[in-house]
Simulated assay, not measured.
Amino acid sequence: MTLAVAAPTRSAWHWTWLTPIMLLLAVMAGTMIGETPIPADTILKVLANRLWGTEFPVDRIDAGIIWSYRLSRAILAACCGAGLALAGVVLQALLRNPLADPFLMGISAGASTGAVTVAIIGLGAGTLSLSLGAFAGAGLAFTLVVALAHAAGSGTGGGRATQAAGAIILAGIAGSQLFNALTALIIAKSASAEQARGIMFWLMGNLSGVRWDDVALGLPAALTGLAICLWYRRALDAFTFGADSAASLGIPVRRVRGALITAMALVTAVMVSMVGTIGFVGLVIPHAMRFIVGSRHTRLVPASALAGAIFLIGADILSRTLVPGQVLPIGVVTALIGAPAFALILIRGARSR
């Protein structure tokens, strides 16, 4: 199985220009839709009052729902979707493995373990402390996965490429299970019953407690990850042909690989520390965008970031509306959508070869 995909169509650039507009519409939809629908003109009035000091008459309850709950939630959902999609793009290019993503490679599970450890043991208070704990867990998990794959005898060249891809994925599955078990052990031994219920719901993906402080951390993380990926976009093109090919083109392989993996681990850790583990975004979105804009990272990176943002906003809307009176974990929704979508991508990719 390779990363080769269909050539970009004539509509590729049209999608690139349309996606920012679609993102704005998605944020608007995420703010409008809920148990109590809110008209678009009310949202615009609230934004004008907050940002430009106007005095449009708006119901105080609606204003509170829009500004303090729905808008911040929609923006953070966009940040998380973009960050996870970027992590999938980078890991798939660096590892030359179409199944690589933060969830499957154990990075999300490690980040969850780190965040839960900080939250329960109390090694610091606030989102930043959770993010640092999540980053440490993500880094440890990825290091363990790489070491395990290397110990299994994986390689990256010659006739061993297929075995290497399989070894990395199996090592990622093993790492994910290990860190998920550690998380469950920490919860069982150290958390109260109330803490355990809250953490287990959070681990499946939860945007309910999102506020502007979270946006202030998530938005810079997503934008920084996007900037780094765009800066190294040509290097990512070279890595899709292997590390040796990248080195032959004058790319400092170790430095670039280390910078990209560190950046994506940090982005994943920040997102996991705020919303929990969300699967399939980093796996499905890059594949879908390759069919639309091609495999050149100049187009693939921004397209994947924006599509991931739209996807997670849509999943959040569904999580709030599928079951009346209840909010589903957003990870459940992404799995229900992502698993069939990925199956279709696999079938289409097999037929195109």
Rank of each mutant, 00 (worst) to 15 (best):
I330F: 06
F342L: 00
A77F: 03
N206Y: 09
T298A: 12
S192E: 02
R351T: 04
V332R: 04
Q177Y: 13
V256W: 12
A29F: 03
A93Q: 01
T334Q: 04
R211V: 14
G114R: 04
R96H: 07
I251Q: 10
D214W: 07
W67G: 02
R73F: 13
L84T: 04
L144E: 04
L283R: 01
L318A: 05
P302C: 00
R50A: 06
V145R: 10
L84K: 05
R290K: 00
D214M: 10
A235W: 06
V293Y: 00
A222L: 07
L95W: 11
A74T: 00
A259N: 12
G158K: 13
A305F: 11
P57N: 11
A343N: 05
V145A: 15
G308H: 02
M22G: 15
L344A: 06
G124R: 10
P340H: 03
L300F: 01
I43L: 10
R160T: 14
T298G: 12
G106Q: 12
R197C: 04
S129W: 14
I173V: 13
Q195H: 03
S154E: 05
A147Q: 14
Q326W: 08
M105V: 11
A77H: 03
A216W: 11
G137T: 01
I251A: 09
T36E: 13
A85I: 03
A12I: 05
T334I: 01
A227I: 07
T19G: 02
A343M: 11
T224Q: 02
R290P: 03
I317C: 05
L230S: 05
S295I: 01
S192K: 09
R234T: 14
A125N: 09
T42C: 04
Q92S: 00
L130W: 14
A221Q: 03
A303T: 12
P252Y: 11
V89A: 10
V146Y: 15
I66K: 10
P102R: 05
S131V: 15
P98A: 06
G314D: 08
P302E: 00
A77S: 11
W15S: 08
R234V: 12
A87D: 03
M32F: 07
G325I: 14
I120C: 08
N49K: 10
H287P: 08
Y69A: 11
I313Q: 08
F135V: 00
L47P: 06
F239P: 01
T268Y: 08
S11Y: 10
G276D: 08
L95P: 02
R257A: 12
A152F: 12
A29Q: 04
E35S: 15
S131N: 05
L51V: 09
T143Q: 09
G158F: 05
L148I: 09
N97W: 06
R320K: 03
G122C: 08
H14R: 14
V332M: 08
A188N: 12
I66P: 11
A246Q: 13
G137Y: 04
V284Y: 01
A26F: 00
L99N: 12
S304T: 02
Q326H: 13
L346C: 02
W212F: 08
L182T: 05
R296G: 01
I186H: 06
I186Y: 04
L185M: 12
L346V: 14
M271K: 04
A315G: 03
A341Y: 02
G314N: 10
A193L: 13
T16N: 12
T42L: 07
R70Y: 04
R73A: 10
R70W: 10
T162D: 15
L99E: 15
L148E: 09
N180G: 13
T334Y: 00
M22R: 08
T16R: 14
L182Q: 06
A191G: 06
